[in-house]
Amino acid sequence: MTLAARSEPVAADVRPRAARDWTALVVDRAPFLVACAMLLILLGIYSTLQRDVFTLEELNLDTTASLTLLLAATGQTIVLVRGGIDLSIGGMISLGTVIAGTQFGEDPANAALWAVIILAIGVGAGVANGLLISVLRLQPFLVTLATWSILGGTALVILPSDGGSIPSGWTWFGNTGFGGLSTSVWILAALVLFWLWFRATRLGIAIRATGSNERSAYLSGVSLTAVNCATYGLSGLFSALAALYLVTQTGTGSPTVGNGYILNTVAAAVIGGVSLFGGRGGLASTIVGAFILTIIGNLVFVLSISSYWQPIASGVILLAAVLASSLAEKSARRGGM
């Protein structure tokens, strides 16, 4: 017996259905919209300095330049949405390139085997992060700071300086294309599809919920240990993927190359509007953020300014984005509730 058995018309006191609240939607997505506008402006400036910016070829080039960052930043985005941070990305990328550089050899089957091993190490290190964070109840930054050091140190032990070699088949795969689009664009498309799927899975929802309000999520039956292991495990997996793609571009193993990605992954996500406090943002934000960083790099190159300006620019933009969002958060809190 249920109440649905009633046959009278539903809801006697229906209020007029609230019109979709456009202002709120815009305010909510303000950081993302600002980032989009910024990307367009940068592209505009870039197109005045360089002919033929809005072409497939340029898309291929920029995606190839962004993809390592994008892959790693996808993992960082998941962690940020969970309300954590992963510094071990730096160590994992370095370790991945070093293992690839020293173990791949020329045999494709061997390279494939080691690629799988690298991915497994990524997942394993990430799950270890998640376990340490939940079981010992430690802060994410501290655990991942330590694992960053351990993974990065391992990379240095394996290969004290840049070296090793990547089989030509592997680099070919990273630099070829299908149907006019480079491999990187296809990978990006796959990444977008993954995200559209992932965010609607139970795990995806649980991760966002836990980042939004840990206690509510727990009261609703979420296991925090499982969520943490999955979150950091995915982050490790994406770092390993980033390393596997990176070696197609550099053709070598490098034991310190990953350190530059730590802040940049956070920057790409946060510039695009992912909240540092958990719960908000997604891959669209991170893609826009990563392309902003790449176009800035292009501009630095075209204007033949010292390339050392690039980290300064991304650091400053990151701080500006974080400041803006934390001020917005403050004023929103003051506004009531």
Partner: peptide, 15 residues
Amino acid sequence: SLVPDLTVAQNVWFR
């Protein structure tokens, strides 16, 4: 016990 960043529908059917 609601999660602020999920929608009404996601909250109602959470877990």
